[in-house]
């Protein structure tokens, strides 16, 4: 059974568009327009897409905050509308990494507060909060007021909050937005650990490198519709994105070779080519370079990135 299942999920918002000083017209925004997808248990699933594509709406519906206008969704086998309270017990949620806490309470007090909302006794909540503070690297800062926390610390506390009820499924809406590289790395490492422990992670992000590094499955959403879905490797393969090969030749001038040559950073000629078969072509280039009596200074094989996938999919 999937951890998350959506069938033909729809959500519309009405917006008032000003026509003149006195008149306004209703405009219908299709935030989700027939989204169907399935997320297996214990995987990291990422939903990516441009701003306003429907990512946060999707997270809010799956976490029972918004009611869909059509279709249905199940989380952990429970219907998000009819069995919302069951869903709420088994999910963790991060909507904005720097929000959702009492500024005048300490990190541990905030976690205990949320623990109590999930029915933990005071002792259980304190114990769990201490464990989570250790897990997220905030062990030494648990007694500090939240208002004194840096953005990175707030993001870690948000993750800790999302785990206070030992959820089966965690929803993370842009969990590393605005974080410095070190804090973002710590959060990514945490997300990876969660998936290793068998938790299902549903995340959204604009950082394609991060999505590629963490996700088992990626879905691209555009104008409320899923336009591509698969593992990062599958998506690249499906779009036939090319690898980029670079072979540096130790030579004073450009050799007479049957491959395109540019000048590299060190001033040596570099064979640069796009290919679908990087292994075969690399051997061919190196053989040719050696046949001509030159030595190879260095080799780089650049994989197509998920960012290219997104750019290609969104520009279709």
């Amino acid at each position: 059974m999937n951890a998350i299942t959506c069938e033909d999920l729809r959500k519309f918002f009405r917006a008032k568009v000003k026509r003149s000083f006195f008149s306004r017209e209703d405009s219908l925004i299709r935030a989700l327009d027939g989204v169907s997808l399935g997320v297996e248990r214990g995987v990291v699933f990422s939903l990516v897409g441009p701003n306003g594509a429907g990512k946060t709406t999707m997270v809010k519906i799956l976490s029972t905050l918004l009611i869909p206008d059509g279709g249905r969704a199940e989380v952990g086998g429970y219907d998000v509308v009819k069995q919302a309270n069951h869903v709420r017990r088994i999910i963790g949620l991060v909507l904005a990494p720097d929000k959702g806490f009492y500024t005048r309470l300490t990190g541990i007090e905030n976690l205990v507060y949320y623990g109590r909302l999930y029915g933990l006794s005071k002792e259980e909540a304190v114990k769990k909060a201490e464990q989570l503070l250790e897990l997220t690297g905030l062990g030494a800062d648990g007694a500090r007021l939240y208002e004194e926390y840096s953005l990175g610390m707030r993001a870690k506390l948000s993750i800790a909050k999302a785990l206070i009820n030992d959820p089966e499924i965690v929803f993370l809406d842009e969990p590393t937005i605005g974080l410095d590289p070190l804090s973002a790395r710590r959060i990514r490492s945490l997300i990876k650990d969660l998936a290793t422990q068998g938790m299902t992670v549903f995340m959204t992000s604009h950082n394609m490198w991060e999505v590629e590094a963490l996700s088992n499955t990626v879905a691209v959403i555009k104008s409320g519709k899923i336009v591509a879905e698969g593992s990062p490797a599958e998506l690249k393969e499906r779009l036939r994105l090319s690898y980029r090969l670079e072979v540096e030749i130790i030579a004073d001038k450009s050799p007479d070779i049957n491959f395109p040559v540019t000048v590299g950073e060190r001033g040596y000629p570099v064979v640069t080519m796009e290919t679908d078969r990087p292994g075969e072509d690399l051997v061919k280039v190196i053989d040719e370079v050696r046949r001509l009596g030159y030595s190879v200074g260095g080799v780089r094989v650049l994989e197509p990135s998920l960012e290219e996938v997104l750019t290609r999919v969104l520009s279709r």
């Binding site: 976490s63 029972t64 905050l65 709420r88 949620l93 929000k99 959702g100 009492y102 500024t103 909302l117």
Partner: peptide, 18 residues
């Protein structure tokens, strides 16, 4: 403003209790 209400709504506790 602080996003706390959404987290309360996403928890099993009724907002009335909160």
């Amino acid at each position: 403003m602080t996003g706390r209400l959404e987290y309360i709504l996403a928890s099993p506790v009724s907002p009335l209790v909160a």
